[in-house]
């Protein structure tokens, strides 16, 4: 099975970016010194060993 290589969506922000401002309970869990990170990556769950075509026919 062919595995699509995906681009990084966004570089993570540098550490000197201030945290979010909403002050919600959940968001306060972020460390004061760290910028929040918003990574998203789709996983296609396929076996990268199998990326060569396999005839079904």
């Amino acid at each position: 099975m062919k595995k699509e290589k995906k681009e990084k969506i966004k570089e993570e922000p540098s550490t000197n970016v201030s945290p979010q401002k909403d002050g919600s309970a959940e968001h306060q869990e972020s460390k004061e010194t760290d910028a929040p990170q918003f990574r998203y990556k789709r996983l296609d769950g396929r076996d990268p060993m199998k990326f060569e075509d396999v005839a079904d026919k």
Binding site: E26, H27, P36, Q37, F38, R39, Y40, K41, R42, L43
Partner: peptide, 14 residues
Amino acid sequence: IATISPDGARLLRS
């Protein structure tokens, strides 16, 4: 299936 950062999950849940 996707993977996201914990901060992203918090935002998503909110």
